[in-house]
Amino acid sequence: MKKTVLQLETLTCPSCIRRIEGTLIKLEGIETAVVKFNASKVEVVYDEMKQSDESVLKVVKDLGYKVISRK
């Protein structure tokens, strides 16, 4: 299991939480996905065999969110 934290641009609507969490959690190999609305961060724990930092990043970008940094 690996944890990655993405810093997004400022999130404005709480519906973003469900959009991002809901999308990520349905993917194979994602253990947990938590969006911190006020900090505008996404914390993802995933199985390295099935996902990678890049694949997680791509999904979030595809949803229409700018990713500022990754930890």
Partner: peptide
């Protein structure tokens, strides 16, 4: 774009 994504993941949001 967001609305399209919402549909894809079956979420009803403001977009």
């Amino acid at each position: 774009k967001k609305a399209f994504m919402d549909l894809k993941y079956k979420i009803i949001g403001i977009d």
